[in-house]
Design a protein around this nucleic acid. Structure first.
Lengths: 113, 113
DNA sequence: ACTATTGTACGAAAACTTTCGTACAGTGAG
DNA sequence: CTCACTGTACGAAAGTTTTCGTACAATAGT
């Protein structure tokens, strides 16, 4: 099935907040914020079932937070930073700056689960 | 029962995003962002059952987004702006600035439900 | 062609959310 | 004191989320 990405102007604040309001997806976004594309299997390096990950990719994708594109046998993920910044200026920066004060960094999160 | 408010440093980004990732609660926060205190019954002026409202006050309160204090027979709500700004600088501003581009303003929201 | 890798699809279970109605507690006004 | 008002508590129903296992599709390498 072709992955469904909303257009920039169809991205809704409420949906983005909702997508980010989950520790696992927040962790993913922090990794992707580092830049570039990551294969699905290389973002979170812990024992999380593939179908669970697929579910979260869908939430992030359908709500306009990430791009997902096939490449060979991998599926590459990247943050829709430009679209999010254009649509909700400052939001992503604020969320990413909230890292230090957040209870879970990526490592703490993955160590926790 | 005494309402439970988390301390400033116990407010979690993920929880705040989650609390705000709901159209009704987002609408409430926009009203409270206008400043001051509002009685529970005066924030959203539409046919939403009191118990549903109570549920949303709890979510917003427990996740550190609002203060709630009894006053006479009313229960006054206000935004925890200082705490949120201190904890996640720029987040609330970004969320509130996302209003114009959001699909529902308060009125559109209440007209919609 | 066969096999291993990478991820999606589907179905299911458990947990959580959202909403409501009804019942109740506390306050203020008459 | 009694009554209306404001909101909470509780229980329930419907819907959504989160997680998993198993099965499958597509690609890349041998």
């Amino acid at each position: 099935m072709t992955p469904h990405h909303p257009d920039r102007d169809q991205i809704k604040l409420e949906n983005v907040l909702n997508a980010l309001g989950n520790p696992m997806r927040l962790a993913v976004v922090r990794v992707l914020a580092g830049g570039g594309e990551h294969a699905c299997g290389t973002v979170l390096s812990k024992e999380i079932s593939k179908s669970t990950l697929t579910h979260h990719w869908r939430v992030l994708r359908d709500n306009g937070v990430i791009w997902q594109r096939p490449s060979g046998r991998e599926n590459l993920l990247s943050l829709r930073r430009e679209d999010l910044d254009a649509r909700f200026p400052g939001l992503l920066d604020a969320v990413l700056n909230g890292v230090d004060s957040a209870p879970e960094t990526i490592d703490q999160f993955t160590a926790h689960i």
